[in-house]
Design a protein around this nucleic acid. Sequence first.
RNA 1: GUGGUUUUAGCUCAGUUGGUUAGAGCGCCUGAUUGUGGUUCAGGAGGUCGCCGGUUCGAGCCCGGUAUUCCACCCCA
Length: 460
Amino acid sequence: MSITKPSLPKGTRDFSPQEMVKRNYIFDTIKTVFKKYGYAEIQTPSMENLATLTGKYGDEGDKLIFKILNSGDFLGKVDEQLLATKNSQLATSKISEKALRYDLTVPFARYVVMHQNDIAFPFKRFQVQPVWRADRPQKGRYREFYQCDADVVGSPSLLNEAEFVLIYHEALSNLGLKDFSIKINNRKILSGIAEMIGKPELIVDMTVAIDKLDKIGLDGVSKELLERGFTESDIEQLKPVILLDGSNVEKIESLKKVLANSAIGLKGIEEIETVFNYVSKLATHNPQPTTQLELDITLARGLNYYTGCIFEVKTNEVAMGSIGGGGRYDDLTGMFGLKDLTGVGISFGADRIYDVLEELNLFPETAAQGTQVLISNFDEAAELYALPVLQQLRTAGIATELYPSATKLKKQLGYADSKNIPFVVLIGAEEMQNGLLTLKDMKSGEQQQLDVASIIEKLT
RNA sequence: GUGGUUUUAGCUCAGUUGGUUAGAGCGCCUGAUUGUGGUUCAGGAGGUCGCCGGUUCGAGCCCGGUAUUCCACCCCA
């Protein structure tokens, strides 16, 4: 076998022990909050049938799905004429029938339909697993990354939306983030606006353009709107909506006037108001979630399937894309043949949150996470003497390791030092004789003679 | 998919108009200290200059291709 130079696929990463400690801290924090709000965990396979995924994310999305080549002589079975066309898109379904999951929502919809007879609705589930996207990596963007999703199916209540605001607030606050915005919008409001200017069919183009207001400014948005089929007079009508300013209440009042003639628009406003009311009641004892919640009608994520409220979370402390998003899709499972089942969910982008916490230095001291005690190894006799001690410490719940060979003490202490192990137990001839072991505090350098029971007492 | 950028020691990076033997800091190893790390001092190991090809008497440096890093666009967590 030839030697291969080690390398990773573009956009993927190894996670070393120190990083895993931090990643698990994020996952555990988010999962704890999910559980507290009544969500139960599930997992689904990394790969799905390609047909399960295609057509769910739009044309752009389909291109970003990682396909898995069929096994065996996959080319031999393909029609010669089809191959001759060199049409990759058409050939794909012939040579690939499986793909890596692109998000957690579509696999969840599939799961719900397949297990509908076993599920008690409303069904609240959370899921923390990697997803894969074949786009170009850049800042905060990876080809393999983890999503932490919580979704409810079978409950049209806007209380769910309101609880998601609380979940976002609680999880991100627990992670140490202070200044972040939970942006909320409603597809129905966007529909109302598109309807108002008489171009309901261009709603997606409209929202994609105004979504960029932050980035390219009003002139840029106007330019893009023109390119996407809007007229100057359309833009004049849109301007007051795009530039909507003020408090949430003020924005809602303005929108009510603008959308007075749009039934669907008013419905969207009503939904938003309901969510705001629920949130303020839920947050009676802590007004923060209310102040973090911000109506932003330029928000237009995932419009391909969202039908009601749309969420996006951004930190204001670091330049980073959104660290979370979500929304309601009235017909979540319709694509798999189960009609009239509404779903609403949110997602945390764990990898981006990691980058943000790293940049803000918000990871807690995790020294206690690793090995607590290293037992030295002087020689064969000391090693044998140490074995029961090792197990006694472990039984007491202290993470302990015995240096596995009798090398120089210098080297063993250097090992403890590089692994940030706070205590070393030294066992030599003298210690074995009188049963008092030397416990060395690596930080202060102090040493004391203690029996095993005292050591355990001191470290627990 | 489009545009730009990066790649030299384990890591972070210097490297002049193309010219002998490619450097630094950190890390690593050895010793000062055969039972004491993190500080100090002395010494040492470690490089196919991403890869393939071209120009040249001569390439880390110039040219072409390719991979890769990071960034922006599209889109998105």
